[in-house]
Design a protein around this nucleic acid. Structure first.
Lengths: 109, 109
DNA sequence: ATACTATATCGGCATATAGGAATATACGGA
DNA sequence: TCCGTATATTCCTATATGCCGATATAGTAT
Protein backbone atom coordinates (compact mmCIF):
# COMPACT_ATOMS: atom_id res chain seq x y z
CA UNK A 1 0.00 0.00 0.00
CA UNK A 2 2.90 2.35 -0.81
CA UNK A 3 3.99 3.37 2.65
CA UNK A 4 7.19 4.57 1.03
CA UNK A 5 7.72 8.21 0.26
CA UNK A 6 7.11 8.80 -3.43
CA UNK A 7 10.07 10.15 -5.35
CA UNK A 8 9.95 13.83 -6.35
CA UNK A 9 9.91 12.74 -9.99
CA UNK A 10 6.91 10.53 -9.34
CA UNK A 11 5.09 13.29 -7.49
CA UNK A 12 5.76 15.71 -10.31
CA UNK A 13 4.56 13.20 -12.88
CA UNK A 14 1.34 12.50 -11.01
CA UNK A 15 0.80 16.21 -10.44
CA UNK A 16 1.33 16.82 -14.14
CA UNK A 17 -1.32 14.28 -14.98
CA UNK A 18 -3.78 15.93 -12.62
CA UNK A 19 -2.94 19.30 -14.14
CA UNK A 20 -3.70 17.90 -17.57
CA UNK A 21 -7.25 17.38 -16.35
CA UNK A 22 -7.25 20.69 -14.53
CA UNK A 23 -8.48 22.86 -17.35
CA UNK A 24 -12.06 23.32 -18.47
CA UNK A 25 -11.12 23.37 -22.16
CA UNK A 26 -9.43 20.01 -21.93
CA UNK A 27 -12.34 18.54 -20.00
CA UNK A 28 -14.67 19.86 -22.68
CA UNK A 29 -12.54 18.14 -25.29
CA UNK A 30 -12.67 14.85 -23.42
CA UNK A 31 -16.43 15.17 -23.18
CA UNK A 32 -16.71 16.13 -26.85
CA UNK A 33 -14.72 13.08 -27.84
CA UNK A 34 -16.88 10.85 -25.70
CA UNK A 35 -17.01 7.29 -26.89
CA UNK A 36 -16.30 8.15 -30.52
CA UNK A 37 -13.30 8.76 -32.64
CA UNK A 38 -13.16 12.44 -33.60
CA UNK A 39 -10.99 14.46 -35.91
CA UNK A 40 -9.53 17.77 -34.77
CA UNK A 41 -11.92 19.59 -37.09
CA UNK A 42 -14.92 17.87 -35.57
CA UNK A 43 -13.73 18.87 -32.12
CA UNK A 44 -13.26 22.45 -33.27
CA UNK A 45 -16.88 22.45 -34.45
CA UNK A 46 -18.25 20.71 -31.39
CA UNK A 47 -16.45 22.93 -28.88
CA UNK A 48 -16.22 26.25 -30.70
CA UNK A 49 -12.60 26.51 -29.69
CA UNK A 50 -9.91 27.79 -32.08
CA UNK A 51 -8.12 25.11 -34.08
CA UNK A 52 -4.75 25.94 -32.57
CA UNK A 53 -6.13 25.61 -29.07
CA UNK A 54 -7.81 22.31 -29.80
CA UNK A 55 -4.64 20.95 -31.30
CA UNK A 56 -2.50 22.13 -28.46
CA UNK A 57 -4.75 20.82 -25.71
CA UNK A 58 -5.10 17.51 -27.49
CA UNK A 59 -1.32 17.31 -27.64
CA UNK A 60 -1.17 17.71 -23.89
CA UNK A 61 -3.88 15.12 -23.31
CA UNK A 62 -1.99 12.79 -25.61
CA UNK A 63 1.34 13.40 -23.91
CA UNK A 64 -0.25 12.45 -20.60
CA UNK A 65 -1.88 9.40 -22.10
CA UNK A 66 -5.51 10.40 -21.69
CA UNK A 67 -6.27 10.26 -25.40
CA UNK A 68 -4.93 8.10 -28.22
CA UNK A 69 -4.64 9.21 -31.82
CA UNK A 70 -4.45 7.67 -35.23
CA UNK A 71 -3.67 9.24 -38.55
CA UNK A 72 -6.36 8.73 -41.16
CA UNK A 73 -5.28 10.39 -44.39
CA UNK A 74 -5.46 14.11 -43.90
CA UNK A 75 -7.21 13.67 -40.58
CA UNK A 76 -6.00 12.74 -37.15
CA UNK A 77 -8.65 10.87 -35.19
CA UNK A 78 -8.59 11.14 -31.43
CA UNK A 79 -10.27 8.84 -28.95
CA UNK A 80 -10.21 8.41 -25.19
CA UNK A 81 -7.28 6.22 -24.27
CA UNK A 82 -9.35 3.95 -22.06
CA UNK A 83 -12.34 3.75 -19.77
CA UNK A 84 -10.40 4.86 -16.73
CA UNK A 85 -10.21 8.38 -18.08
CA UNK A 86 -13.94 8.69 -17.61
CA UNK A 87 -13.71 6.94 -14.28
CA UNK A 88 -11.36 9.63 -13.02
CA UNK A 89 -13.59 12.41 -14.30
CA UNK A 90 -16.68 10.84 -12.82
CA UNK A 91 -15.05 10.35 -9.45
CA UNK A 92 -14.08 14.00 -9.39
CA UNK A 93 -17.44 15.07 -10.73
CA UNK A 94 -19.10 13.16 -7.93
CA UNK A 95 -17.00 14.94 -5.33
CA UNK A 96 -17.86 18.32 -6.79
CA UNK A 97 -21.57 17.58 -6.91
CA UNK A 98 -21.53 16.33 -3.36
CA UNK A 99 -19.64 19.43 -2.19
CA UNK A 100 -21.97 21.76 -4.08
CA UNK A 101 -24.92 20.01 -2.52
CA UNK A 102 -23.41 20.42 0.90
CA UNK A 103 -22.81 24.10 0.30
CA UNK A 104 -26.35 24.61 -0.98
CA UNK A 105 -27.81 22.82 2.02
CA UNK A 106 -25.74 24.95 4.33
CA UNK A 107 -27.06 28.10 2.70
CA UNK A 108 -30.65 26.95 2.56
CA UNK A 109 -30.49 25.57 6.08
CA UNK B 1 -24.34 8.35 -17.59
CA UNK B 2 -24.46 12.13 -18.06
CA UNK B 3 -24.98 12.35 -21.79
CA UNK B 4 -25.84 16.00 -21.21
CA UNK B 5 -23.28 18.69 -21.80
CA UNK B 6 -21.83 19.80 -18.49
CA UNK B 7 -22.32 23.45 -17.66
CA UNK B 8 -19.28 25.71 -17.93
CA UNK B 9 -19.49 26.28 -14.20
CA UNK B 10 -19.40 22.56 -13.56
CA UNK B 11 -16.46 22.08 -15.90
CA UNK B 12 -14.58 24.86 -14.19
CA UNK B 13 -15.34 23.41 -10.76
CA UNK B 14 -14.16 19.94 -11.76
CA UNK B 15 -11.07 21.39 -13.42
CA UNK B 16 -10.34 23.35 -10.26
CA UNK B 17 -10.50 20.19 -8.22
CA UNK B 18 -8.07 18.46 -10.56
CA UNK B 19 -5.79 21.48 -10.39
CA UNK B 20 -5.83 21.25 -6.62
CA UNK B 21 -4.18 17.85 -6.98
CA UNK B 22 -1.96 19.10 -9.79
CA UNK B 23 0.96 20.28 -7.73
CA UNK B 24 3.72 18.18 -6.24
CA UNK B 25 3.77 20.16 -2.99
CA UNK B 26 0.11 19.54 -2.36
CA UNK B 27 0.48 15.85 -3.15
CA UNK B 28 3.37 15.71 -0.73
CA UNK B 29 1.16 17.27 1.91
CA UNK B 30 -1.58 14.72 1.31
CA UNK B 31 0.98 11.97 1.61
CA UNK B 32 2.48 13.53 4.75
CA UNK B 33 -0.95 13.70 6.34
CA UNK B 34 -1.63 10.11 5.47
CA UNK B 35 -4.07 8.42 7.80
CA UNK B 36 -3.30 10.68 10.75
CA UNK B 37 -4.35 14.03 11.99
CA UNK B 38 -1.48 16.50 11.61
CA UNK B 39 -0.93 20.06 12.72
CA UNK B 40 0.49 22.61 10.30
CA UNK B 41 3.75 22.60 12.24
CA UNK B 42 4.08 18.84 11.94
CA UNK B 43 3.56 19.12 8.21
CA UNK B 44 6.16 21.86 7.98
CA UNK B 45 8.61 19.51 9.68
CA UNK B 46 7.65 16.48 7.65
CA UNK B 47 7.82 18.25 4.28
CA UNK B 48 10.50 20.86 4.81
CA UNK B 49 8.30 23.44 3.15
CA UNK B 50 8.01 26.99 4.49
CA UNK B 51 5.17 27.48 6.94
CA UNK B 52 3.45 30.03 4.71
CA UNK B 53 3.46 27.59 1.81
CA UNK B 54 2.10 24.74 3.88
CA UNK B 55 -0.68 26.91 5.19
CA UNK B 56 -1.63 28.22 1.78
CA UNK B 57 -1.62 24.85 0.07
CA UNK B 58 -3.64 23.35 2.90
CA UNK B 59 -6.13 26.17 2.47
CA UNK B 60 -6.53 25.22 -1.19
CA UNK B 61 -6.90 21.54 -0.35
CA UNK B 62 -9.49 22.46 2.23
CA UNK B 63 -11.39 24.76 -0.12
CA UNK B 64 -11.65 21.89 -2.59
CA UNK B 65 -12.72 19.48 0.11
CA UNK B 66 -9.75 17.13 -0.01
CA UNK B 67 -8.78 17.74 3.60
CA UNK B 68 -10.81 18.53 6.69
CA UNK B 69 -9.57 20.59 9.60
CA UNK B 70 -10.34 21.05 13.24
CA UNK B 71 -9.13 23.64 15.68
CA UNK B 72 -7.43 22.20 18.71
CA UNK B 73 -6.36 25.02 20.97
CA UNK B 74 -3.48 26.78 19.30
CA UNK B 75 -3.23 24.08 16.68
CA UNK B 76 -5.20 23.32 13.59
CA UNK B 77 -5.28 19.61 12.85
CA UNK B 78 -5.69 18.52 9.27
CA UNK B 79 -6.77 15.11 8.03
CA UNK B 80 -7.74 13.64 4.68
CA UNK B 81 -11.41 14.35 4.08
CA UNK B 82 -12.19 10.77 3.11
CA UNK B 83 -10.80 7.62 1.55
CA UNK B 84 -11.69 8.66 -1.98
CA UNK B 85 -8.90 11.23 -1.94
CA UNK B 86 -6.41 8.41 -1.85
CA UNK B 87 -8.43 6.47 -4.40
CA UNK B 88 -8.05 9.34 -6.87
CA UNK B 89 -4.34 9.61 -6.25
CA UNK B 90 -3.84 5.90 -6.57
CA UNK B 91 -5.79 5.74 -9.81
CA UNK B 92 -3.61 8.48 -11.24
CA UNK B 93 -0.47 6.96 -9.82
CA UNK B 94 -1.34 3.70 -11.53
CA UNK B 95 -1.73 5.46 -14.87
CA UNK B 96 1.62 7.16 -14.50
CA UNK B 97 3.39 3.95 -13.56
CA UNK B 98 1.83 2.14 -16.47
CA UNK B 99 2.82 4.93 -18.88
CA UNK B 100 6.35 5.08 -17.53
CA UNK B 101 6.62 1.35 -17.97
CA UNK B 102 5.42 1.63 -21.51
CA UNK B 103 7.93 4.35 -22.28
CA UNK B 104 10.75 2.38 -20.72
CA UNK B 105 9.82 -0.71 -22.71
CA UNK B 106 9.72 1.33 -25.90
CA UNK B 107 13.20 2.64 -25.23
CA UNK B 108 14.65 -0.70 -24.19
CA UNK B 109 12.93 -2.50 -27.04
C1' DA C 1 -3.74 43.90 28.88
C1' DT C 2 0.84 41.58 27.66
C1' DA C 3 3.49 37.96 26.02
C1' DC C 4 4.00 33.86 23.60
C1' DT C 5 2.86 30.26 20.11
C1' DA C 6 0.57 28.45 16.00
C1' DT C 7 -1.55 29.49 11.89
C1' DA C 8 -3.15 32.55 8.16
C1' DT C 9 -2.58 36.22 4.99
C1' DC C 10 -0.16 39.82 2.30
C1' DG C 11 3.26 41.61 -1.10
C1' DG C 12 6.78 40.93 -4.36
C1' DC C 13 9.11 38.16 -7.65
C1' DA C 14 9.72 34.40 -10.91
C1' DT C 15 7.74 30.97 -13.64
C1' DA C 16 4.04 28.42 -15.98
C1' DT C 17 0.26 28.28 -18.85
C1' DA C 18 -3.84 29.59 -21.77
C1' DG C 19 -5.39 31.90 -25.86
C1' DG C 20 -4.90 33.97 -30.44
C1' DA C 21 -2.66 35.13 -34.96
C1' DA C 22 0.52 33.70 -38.04
C1' DT C 23 3.30 30.16 -39.81
C1' DA C 24 4.91 25.50 -40.61
C1' DT C 25 4.16 20.71 -41.56
C1' DA C 26 1.72 16.45 -43.30
C1' DC C 27 -1.00 14.36 -46.55
C1' DG C 28 -3.67 13.58 -50.86
C1' DG C 29 -4.99 14.82 -55.58
C1' DA C 30 -4.10 16.72 -60.01
C1' DT D 1 5.76 19.15 -59.02
C1' DC D 2 2.24 22.58 -57.10
C1' DC D 3 -2.20 23.21 -54.72
C1' DG D 4 -5.57 22.69 -51.22
C1' DT D 5 -6.95 20.82 -46.80
C1' DA D 6 -6.13 19.25 -41.99
C1' DT D 7 -3.29 19.49 -38.23
C1' DA D 8 0.75 21.07 -35.51
C1' DT D 9 3.84 24.52 -33.87
C1' DT D 10 5.76 29.13 -32.89
C1' DC D 11 5.57 33.61 -31.00
C1' DC D 12 3.46 36.87 -28.18
C1' DT D 13 0.74 38.70 -24.35
C1' DA D 14 -2.15 38.32 -20.32
C1' DT D 15 -3.10 35.87 -16.39
C1' DA D 16 -2.53 32.43 -12.86
C1' DT D 17 0.23 30.29 -9.53
C1' DG D 18 4.16 28.98 -6.54
C1' DC D 19 7.56 30.40 -3.34
C1' DC D 20 9.36 33.18 0.30
C1' DG D 21 9.78 36.85 3.98
C1' DA D 22 7.22 39.76 6.69
C1' DT D 23 3.19 40.70 9.03
C1' DA D 24 -1.48 39.90 10.83
C1' DT D 25 -4.66 37.06 13.35
C1' DA D 26 -6.31 33.48 16.67
C1' DG D 27 -5.76 31.27 20.81
C1' DT D 28 -3.67 30.48 25.58
C1' DA D 29 -1.80 31.77 29.76
C1' DT D 30 -0.21 35.00 33.31
Amino acid sequence: MSTRTPTPAMLEAVAGHFRALGDASRLRLLHAIGGEERSVGELVTRTGMAQASVSKQLAQLHATGFVARRRDGLFVRYRLADAKVLQLCELMCGRVERDEGRRARRIAG
